[in-house]
Every structure is written in C-alpha cells, then in structure tokens.
Design a protein around this nucleic acid. Structure first.
Lengths: 206, 206
DNA sequence: TTTCCTAAGGAACCTTGCGTCTCTTATCGG
DNA sequence: CCGATAAGAGACGCAAGGTTCCTTAGGAAA
C-alpha cells in the first residue's frame, strides 16, 4: 500500500466529505469565482484558484466551461437584466434613475474584468456579442427610447425617431470610464452626463 | 567537446552573424512586435514570438522591458502625438479631420490590443495613465477647445467655456468602441459622432 | 435495501509561456 | 589592440491552461 493509496483511503473514510451536485455545486463555483475576481482582479484569477476556493477540482470546472472567460461570462449572465423602466414624470430623473440601476449591475466587478473579457473573446463574434449584451447594450436602447418618447409627449425633449447613436450615448459615456479602469461611475458622474450632455442634446431641435 | 560546444563554435564561425546594437536592435524588435500583433492579436502574442521574429533572444527584450505590455506601450509611444490642429474654416470639418488623425494612430492595432493592454495594466496607475494618453486623452482636450473656440468666433457653435465633459465627449465615444473590441472607428463612425452628437450639442444654447 | 450509473473530487500529466540566469563572443570606443 | 558591454543562445524553474485517469459519493430506480 503506497502513500497515495493511503491518502485515497483516508479521504474516502473522512466523515467530513460532502460532495455537491448540480445547482449546489454551480452556486459554490460562482460564489468562489466572484470572490476570486474581487480579490485578485480578472487578470490574476485562475481556474485553479476558483476550483480550490469552491472546494472542487479543475476538471469539474472544465466539464462545464471551456475556459475561464466563459465561466465569468456565465457569471454575468446570472444577473438579471430585467431592469425597471423608471417613470418619474421627468426625463432627467428617469435617466438618472435608470443609469444608476444599470451601473449598479457592474458595481462589484474589478476594473480589469470587462477589458479582460473583451480582450480574451474578441476573436469569437458570438461571445463578443454576449459580453456586449451583458454589460448593457442593445437591450438598454429600448429603455432609453421609451424614456425619450414619453418625454417628447410631454414636450420635454425633441420628438423621435432616435438613432442608435443617441440611444447608446449615455451608457457609452459611463461605460467608457468603467472599461478604462476608472471604476464604477458615481452619482455625480451620472448627473453630469445627463445634465451636460444628454439633456441639452435632447432639447435641441436637432 | 559536447554537442552544445560544437553548436556554439559553429555559430561563432558563421559568416552571417551580425549582431545589432542600440537603436537598430530596438527598431527590429518594434517591427517584429508590430507584425506579431497584427498576425496573432495581442492575446496570442508572446515575448518568445517577438524575440524570434526579431532574430534575438528573450533576455534581450527583458533587458529593456519588464513585460510584454510595456513593450507594446512603448510601441504606442513611438507614434507621434504631435497632431496638427486642423483649420478648415468649419467646426464640423475640423472635428472630422482631427478625429481621423487621432484614430489613424491606432489603425493597425488588432481589436484585442487596447482592451488587453487596459486589462493588464489597470492595477498600475502610472501605466494606466500612459495608455489613456496614448489612445487619446487629456492632451486632446486642448485641440477640441481650440476648434470650438474658433467656431464660436465664427458663430458656428455656442461660446465657451467648455466643461471637461464636453471636451472629452468625442474621443470617449470613439474610444469606447475601441476598448470594447470593435476595432478602430471608421470614417463613417467619425462622421456620425460629429453629425449626430457633437455638432447638435454644440449648437444648442446650452 | 440494494443496485447501477454518473459525475464529483483528487492527483498526475503534458504543454506552453513567463521570467531568470549563465556563458560565449561580437561590437564599439578608446 | 584591448577592454567593456551587451547580443544571442540555451538551459532552467515555475505556474497555469487544459487533459486524463481513477476512486467513490450520491441519487434514482427497482
């Protein structure tokens, strides 16, 4: 009986051994991934680190995800994108409310997470699309359109139709700071974007 | 005499051996780096690949740069930032001209280069600052201010002063796409940013 | 309860690239 | 010519990505 055999038998006899399956295991993996990302950043996070933290083996992770980036992408997928469309009676307040919600979705990601994900998946158009979607892309346009159209009916802003450039403007400005490593936009950042750029632009006759 | 000894002596006797020093060597390294980046993308480019392509050893690269990211950053540094301030007589054309120049500096980088660089350096504030600068940052504000002030004198746009939010707007929008892995903005991207966002905003009474 | 199937968990393995070190010697300047 | 230095080549250690193999816990069905 070799040392390895002894070790295996030892493990098998260990009363604390508890194997998880399915959802419970995946929850543990996701929780471990979030912690590793927060503590180490995306660039320094490893599959091994997540596996160990989740109390499992690398092979278990690779049975589910082909690589780290797709695991992290799945982590983003779990966050609800069902944001509420604010209806405060004022375009300005609707925008501020919604942008705060949207930015809050990514508040706990380390600054290198988005650029790191983008860099590692840019060659794969489908993954690139999913990332773009997860961090707020085309879905958000519908919300902004609804806010502007409602405001146009109240005479607050110019009437539509609104081009993609307009509908993507607010998120692009805030996301720019996020992906450039400046961290999550603050409330005053959001206020400035709305008050200095978006509202003046939307009031013009165009 | 071992095989390794024979090999070394063989190399020493090789009439084609030409060692480069200083600038000539660095030029060869930068040229190799550009080619590797173009062919493989940032994520797949290796120090080894660049060294081999430059006909030198890894240690030579590490004598100059602590890692690949700083080599690539130095590559960006070599590109002149002395962009001309256009004076076409029209704000719109000045903007388009300048933005085309600015974007042209990065035209040959693969789409994962900027996000990759950002991700790998975000934890280092000084490097992050330099990258931000290389892909168009605070220096450009002066150019935009000059263009707008000239236009205001002609009555084309509203008068100053112009906040940072205004002065950073065009580059942020283009840079957003760049960092999101969309590649270098096209001329029509630039036209849209100018015509749909910047000019209407700058014409408003504010 | 027993049986069977399957995936969990652990460990070993291979490859690749980062980064380092050593040694020979080409190159340049004095 | 001589001396100093960095180029070039190769070896090395380590870590992480990804893979494979084996034991066995866990769940479902009989």
């Amino acid at each position: 009986m070799t040392d390895a055999d002894t070790q295996r038998m030892g493990a098998a006899a260990d009363a604390n051994v508890v194997r998880r399956r399915g959802t419970a295991l995946e929850d543990a993996i996701f929780a471990a991934a979030e912690s590793e990302l927060t503590e180490r950043g995306f660039t320094k996070t490893t599959v091994k680190g997540i596996a160990e933290r989740a109390g499992t083996g690398k092979a278990v992770l690779y049975r589910r995800w082909p690589n780290l980036s797709e695991l992290v992408l799945d982590l983003l997928r779990r966050r609800s994108l069902d944001l509420e469309v604010p209806d405060t009676g004022s375009v300005r307040d609707d925008l501020r409310e919604f942008l705060m919600q949207a930015c809050g979705l990514l508040a706990d990601l380390p600054p290198d997470a988005i650029p790191g994900l983008v860099a590692s998946t840019v060659q794969n158009p489908e993954l690139a699309r999913q990332i773009s979607e997860r961090i707020g892309s085309h879905r958000f346009e519908d919300v902004f359109r609804a806010i502007f159209e409602r405001g146009a009916e109240r005479g607050e802003v110019r009437p539509g139709p609104y081009s993609d450039r307009i509908l993507t403007l607010p998120m692009k400005l805030l996301r720019h700071d996020l992906v450039m490593g400046k961290g999550v936009p603050s409330h005053s950042d959001i206020d400035e974007v709305v008050d200095v750029i978006v509202m003046p632009l939307m009031r013009t006759a165009g």
